[in-house]
Computed example of a mutant assay.
Amino acid sequence: MLEYLDRPIAFHRAFVQLGIGITGALLLSQALYCIDAERWFYKSIEEWDEETGMTRREIDTARSKLRKLGILVEKKQGVPCRIYYRIDEPNLIGCLGQTSMADCANPEFIHPPDCSGEIRRPITENTQILPKTTTETASPKSEFGLPWRLKR
């Protein structure tokens, strides 16, 4: 079976909490893997595709989401023009520290301003506001909020 498989690709699941989806988390994980001592690195679309298996459209969408959050910084340089990338690590750490699963589900959650002072909203995909649920039940409860039949 192993003869049919390619090398595995790992990604950091915590990045999904940033609202960038699986493709964004995969691209960000791969970018962190590529960082060199100078922090800027170059990758062509073909290299991203070869390493991740993502299509050009998926790569462009993931890059766009990461740029909007201020996590991925890009610069064009050289002849022919190439796009170089850098991860804004302090911003990434700040976003990870302030984002939780509850925040991602809340469309009113606002990320702190990025270095340009612009307030960013999380990027969500297919977000729906669900009806409020209650924890009230018809059975009586103990002083700890447990149904009487569960109290020992």
Score class of each variant (00 low, 15 high):
P131F: 03
I110G: 06
P113H: 07
I71G: 00
T134A: 05
E118I: 10
K75V: 15
G70R: 00
N91W: 01
T133P: 03
K132Q: 13
S139W: 13
C95G: 10
I123D: 00
R121E: 02
N126R: 13
R86D: 04
N91S: 10
C115G: 15
K75W: 11
R121F: 03
R82P: 01
E125M: 10
I83F: 07
G117Y: 14
E118A: 14
S116L: 12
L69G: 01
I123S: 01
E108M: 08
L72K: 00
R86G: 03
A105S: 13
C104D: 09
G97S: 12
V73A: 05
E74M: 12
M101L: 14
T137W: 04
S116H: 11
G97K: 07
I87A: 10
C81A: 12
P140A: 07
K75H: 15
P140S: 06
L72M: 04
L69Q: 00
E136Q: 06
A102N: 12
C115E: 12
I83R: 03
E125R: 10
P131Y: 02
Y84R: 13
A102I: 09
A105W: 05
P113R: 06
E74C: 09
R82Y: 04
P80E: 10
Q98M: 11
L130H: 15
I110T: 11
C115M: 11
H111I: 06
I71H: 01
L92M: 13
T137S: 07
D103F: 04
D103I: 03
T137D: 04
N106K: 09
P80K: 08
F109Q: 02
E74S: 09
Q98F: 08
R121S: 04
R82V: 04
T134C: 06
A138M: 11
K68Y: 02
E74H: 09
V73H: 02
C81T: 14
T137M: 07
E118L: 10
I83Y: 04
T134Y: 01
L72A: 00
H111R: 08
A138I: 10
Q77V: 11
K132M: 14
P140E: 07
F109G: 00
P90K: 13
H111E: 06
T127C: 09
P107A: 15
E125L: 09
C104R: 06
G94T: 02
I129K: 02
I83D: 02
G70T: 00
L96K: 02
S100C: 15
V73W: 02
P131T: 03
R120T: 02
C104A: 11
S116F: 09
G78E: 15
I123P: 00
K76Q: 14
P112N: 09
G94N: 04
G70M: 00
L69V: 06
E89S: 13
R120D: 02
G70I: 01
T135C: 01
P112G: 05
